[in-house]
Design a protein around this nucleic acid. Sequence first.
DNA 1: CTGTATCCTATCTGATACTG
DNA 2: CAGTATCAGATAGGATACAG
Lengths: 136, 136
Amino acid sequence: MATMTAAQRREAARVGFDAYIAECPARQLLDRIGDKWVSLVVNALADGPQRYSDLRRRLAGVSEKMLTQTLRALERDGLLTRTVTPSVPARVDYALTPLGTGLLPLMQSIKAWAEEHMPEVLAARESYDAAAGNGK
Amino acid sequence: MATMTAAQRREAARVGFDAYIAECPARQLLDRIGDKWVSLVVNALADGPQRYSDLRRRLAGVSEKMLTQTLRALERDGLLTRTVTPSVPARVDYALTPLGTGLLPLMQSIKAWAEEHMPEVLAARESYDAAAGNGK
DNA sequence: CTGTATCCTATCTGATACTG
DNA sequence: CAGTATCAGATAGGATACAG
């Protein structure tokens, strides 16, 4: 048959759009830097190389699992390097690559926009919630 | 007692840091624009006001639930307006507010960085995976 | 047309315990 | 010191059916 059911057409459109989203560079980037700990790790490393335990201390709330997972993801993406010094006890240093350093100006832009406009967003949120609260 | 156990100190540090993260404007912003559909909706509305069904068509893969949820969140944050025309059938238009429009340059910066550097990231990812694959 | 309600799965996140 | 392994709870995301 040359025709598809409506459900099939919708499904086909969804799959195609999902593929488009998966390839969209901007969304790939947002997926990465939107991760809870990524921006914090990158910022911590902006001050220079840090050891695993330094990072764990600076990001006081991170679990070992999430820290390791975040560092591995960033290493995989070429944003930072992992250097093992096989002394006893072992020592591992993490440092931003040039690619990772190149991310800093963008993070700065995001931070600047946030600091300038998030208060408005928060105010809007409060007034929206207040209105909804009155309705109930 | 003046002292806390190690576990208590860690817990206190974690709670304090979580509070800091929750207040950090940059992280709040990333949480918002990192949502899967937010950037797509904002971009779609950059071309001008759109109706609910227009958006659903343009974002082919979105479920009604996620589209509504995303639109409500953006409305709550003062980034877009929702205008109901109570005709039959009902008609609802969504449009960016000035605050929402102000987000566009930032989105553009993100897109620009992504298009310039994501190929490097993807290449790093492939070579990392290839190396890991050899090891197994 | 524009949603809301329900149910279900996948993923994310974290706590805990253990290892080289 | 720097992780890995495992388990459980929370949350996001989506399919489907129904309502105003």
